[in-house]
Write a protein that binds this DNA or RNA. Structure first.
Ligand code: FES
Ligand code: FES
Lengths: 144, 144
DNA sequence: TGGAAATCGGACAAGAATGTCCTAATATTG
DNA sequence: CAATATTAGGACATTCTTGTCCGATTTCCA
């Protein structure tokens, strides 16, 4: 569904949002450990998210990544997905034609479009702050 | 959403089903041309589908691939997807945890499961014969 | 002011997905 | 029976994704 890179991005963002609720900042090392992601690779992902303006990053000692609650409420999942995977999720055709296009649709178009619209709606209406609440309550997990 | 291999598989299967309605059999060359897929690679995909029992294949001159309407009505998309991509679509976690698991869910689980169930339902209830009808009417396309 | 702690970013490495090529096996047709 | 058309399948090549490493830069703090 999403690329592995994007999955790492979502996990990290939700985690950082949870710490952000306590005004805390997280280092790469903690993030990688808590999400069960490869450290060096996660660094790249976090850099991308920071450049996209989704996360705040601070260099130097006591630095790290940060996402204050006010901002976390405005960060919808689709922003993360778009920043990492681009709009492939929204524009792609279910049967692999170059672009989904209702004027010259693939046989699956009608069926597929509906599912994809549901997915898009879900991504657009879910913010990372909300997702971080379950984490904090301990009812949801970022690794196993 | 699906692998490229799987997209080729779906395109080919729907095409063959259309020809099957006229009792015709298709050769690899025709299939690759009509679906805009790389020939040699498509050969592998068709072999997989034949081994999985989704297509009938005949070797030798005047041979090719075949899917009679009676069978096409019973071949649901989820069979093709499963034959090529495995059950990753059904069992995978939206945030990349090893397996979707409601007992120890990721923060996205509830939201994600719903979309995935819709997708699964769509795949399970759509058969390739139905999809081939639009193709034949010329209202849907397999390449652009 | 210098060392330690951290992100940034480029170059490289490993692995998976996608794609090609060639030979063998098999069936049709003249 | 021989030639031809076709699928089957293994080995190899290429490209994309995922992952590692290392040096540069920035900031904090003693
Ligand atoms: S054209 Fe294939 S999904 Fe829209
Ligand atoms: S556990 Fe992540 S989707 Fe179910």
């Amino acid at each position: 569904m999403f690329s592995k890179t994007c999955e790492y991005a979502i996990r990290a963002t939700v985690l950082i949002a949870m710490e952000g609720r306590h005004g805390r900042r997280m280092s790469l090392v903690e993030i990688a450990r808590s999400t069960g992601s490869p450290q060096a690779f996660t660094a790249k992902v976090l850099q991308q998210l920071a450049r996209s303006g989704i996360l705040d990053s601070t260099k130097g000692a006591r630095g790290g990544f940060d996402l204050p609650p006010a901002k976390a409420k405005k960060v919808k999942l689709n922003m993360v997905v778009k920043a990492i995977d681009g709009d492939h999720v929204y524009k792609g055709c279910g049967m692999g034609l170059p672009q989904c296009n209702a004027r010259k649709p693939c046989p699956l178009h009608d069926h597929f479009q509906q599912v994809r619209d549901d997915l898009r709606h879900m991504l657009e209406s879910t913010d990372v702050h909300t997702l971080s609440l379950g984490l904090e309550r301990g009812t949801t997990y970022l690794k196993r």
